[in-house]
Simulated scan of single mutants.
Amino acid sequence: MKHKNDSREKILIAAAHLFQTKGFNATGLNEILKEKWFPKRFLYYYFPNGKEELALEAIKVSTQNIKSNLMRIWRNMKIPLKPFSQLLLI
């Protein structure tokens, strides 16, 4: 099952990158798939509701990556996390 999750994750990462750099409306599904050379059927297998579902999942992945990066930075700077816990929903 790891292969399945790897493919899904790669599509999400490519989508998140393109949505962030070009915007949702300017990014087509074919462009996302071309980024990692996946056939279109992969997209609809993992995201049966299409581009909108893919965008929502990409936002979740991006949000989690941002939270993880902020936590790593704050730990390295030794800043107390209490004031930030509500922002990160810890």
Rank of each mutant, 00 (worst) to 15 (best):
K60P: 02
L56I: 09
G23Y: 12
K40A: 09
S68L: 10
Y44H: 10
W37H: 12
N76K: 07
K34R: 11
M1T: 10
V61I: 06
F84T: 09
E35F: 05
T27G: 06
E31T: 14
F42E: 13
N30L: 06
G50N: 03
L18A: 02
V61Y: 02
K4T: 10
A58Y: 05
R75Y: 06
H3R: 15
N49P: 10
Y44C: 03
T21M: 01
N69T: 13
P48Y: 00
L87P: 01
E53T: 10
E57V: 05
Q20T: 14
R75L: 15
N65C: 04
S68M: 13
K34Y: 08
L12R: 07
F84A: 11
Y45I: 01
Y45L: 01
N49R: 15
S62F: 03
W74T: 11
K36L: 04
Q64F: 08
I32M: 00
P80I: 05
K22C: 06
I90E: 12
K40D: 13
M77S: 14
Y46S: 01
W74N: 12
P48D: 04
M1G: 15
K4R: 09
V61C: 03
A16D: 08
R8A: 04
I73M: 10
K78L: 15
K40N: 08
P80T: 04
T63N: 12
E53Y: 08
E53H: 05
I73Q: 12
H3A: 14
T63L: 06
S85I: 07
K34G: 14
L54H: 05
Y44W: 07
E35S: 04
E57F: 09
I79G: 03
K36T: 06
W37P: 02
E35C: 02
M71K: 14
R41Q: 12
A58V: 02
N65E: 12
F38H: 07
E52C: 06
L33Q: 04
L81A: 03
L88D: 01
K36V: 12
A55Y: 15
I13M: 04
T63K: 11
R8T: 00
F24C: 01
L89A: 14
D6I: 15
L33I: 00
K67L: 08
F24Q: 00
Y45K: 10
S7R: 13
N5Q: 11
F42V: 11
A16W: 10
K36C: 11
H3S: 11
K22E: 03
E9D: 09
L87V: 01
N25D: 12
K40F: 15
E57R: 04
I66D: 04
F42G: 05
A58K: 07
E35H: 05
S62H: 08
E31R: 15
L54Y: 09
Q64R: 12
K34D: 11
E9R: 13
